[in-house]
């Protein structure tokens, strides 16, 4: 009798576990289906090739080109800026100050802390900095804010890869008389190149999808920005603002923007996957 109960318990939980796992797959399918179903009918050529025209927000002509280009500018700029900090930092932890465990653990601790801070707080922080420096809401302010927000994401991803560089590789590079810079930027960077690209893609995906960090800092405009000091629209902001409109045509455009954003994110995800597969084939073990 007890045995039967036990078996029943195990069966019960097995079904529950398998069910919840299957639910995850269903969930993704459901989210993507609804975004495609709602977004596809409004996703015309006009949407991706034109900026908003007069009366756009009452449902007349125009498209989302300003937001698409704005998002790409913002995310690329932020990733580039962040890379100039995060790559040296990851190399500092794994090459330059490799022999200083306490320091490296201190940095990892701070990165964990920064990583946990919500993007709205980064947005608020970016806003205070903006006021302090006297910059107005602009592409530049957005780039700076997003680059700070994706910094811990990038460094952690790179650190993960660089931690696994075998010590013997560092040793042989150093024994050839290389300086720390040469070991870091010529040997380790090359060895971890696919990992660095993965980190960049990951950060790009985060940067392009975030609203809360740019809400205060980029402003919003119907034009494509022509300089760093211009305001800019972004895709997630376009979704957010247009969904709040009472006019159905404008709401539909929010769905179209959501679909474009989802496609970009999925493309990044596929690229990352292909890359890591290729990496496994050629890396030195």
């Amino acid at each position: 009798m007890r045995k039967l109960l036990k078996t029943l318990e195990e069966r019960f939980f097995f079904v529950l576990m398998a069910g919840s796992t299957a639910f995850l797959a269903l969930l993704l399918l459901m989210i993507i289906t609804i975004i495609v179903y709602k977004g596809l009918p409004s996703l015309t050529w006009e949407m991706v090739s034109q900026t908003p025209k007069g009366g756009y927000y009452f449902g007349r002509e125009g498209g989302l080109l300003n937001a698409i280009i704005g998002s790409l500018y913002l995310a690329s700029g932020a990733v580039a800026l962040s890379l100039s900090i995060s790559l040296p930092l990851a190399l500092a932890m794994n090459v330059y100050f490799r022999n200083r465990k306490k320091l490296v653990n201190g940095i990892r601790f701070i990165l964990d802390l920064l990583w946990g801070i919500p993007s709205i707080v980064y947005g608020a922080f970016g806003f205070t900095i903006m006021i302090y420096l006297g910059i107005r809401a602009s592409l530049l302010a957005g780039i700076i804010t997003v680059s700070i927000f994706i910094l811990p994401i990038m460094v952690r991803a790179m650190d993960e890869v660089m931690k696994n560089v075998p010590l013997s590789l560092l040793e042989s590079a150093f024994s050839l008389g290389s300086t720390r810079r040469e070991v870091a930027f010529k040997v380790v960077t090359r060895q971890c190149f696919p990992g660095i690209i993965t980190a960049v893609l990951l950060a790009f995906g985060r940067g392009i999808g975030d609203v809360a960090a740019v809400l205060f800092t980029t402003g919003y405009t119907d034009n494509i920005p022509t300089s760093l000091m211009d305001q800019t629209a972004t895709l997630p902001l376009a979704v957010f603002f247009q969904l709040g409109s009472p006019i159905p045509e404008v709401q539909n455009r929010a769905y179209a923007a959501a679909l474009i954003l989802t496609v970009i994110i999925l493309a990044i995800s596929v690229a990352t996957r292909l890359l890591s597969r290729k990496f496994h084939k050629t890396s030195i073990k």
């Binding site: 995850l24 797959a25 993704l28 989210i31 709602k38 999808g209 979704v239 969904l243 954003l261 995800s269």
Partner: peptide
């Protein structure tokens, strides 16, 4: 191997998309 990419993609979906999905469903 089948589930890992699904989890990764779920993790990568921007919160505004979750918001749209929330409003719709």
């Amino acid at each position: 191997a089948f589930m890992q990419p699904i989890i990764d993609i779920l993790a990568g979906i921007p919160s505004v998309i979750y918001g749209v999905w929330g409003v719709l469903i």
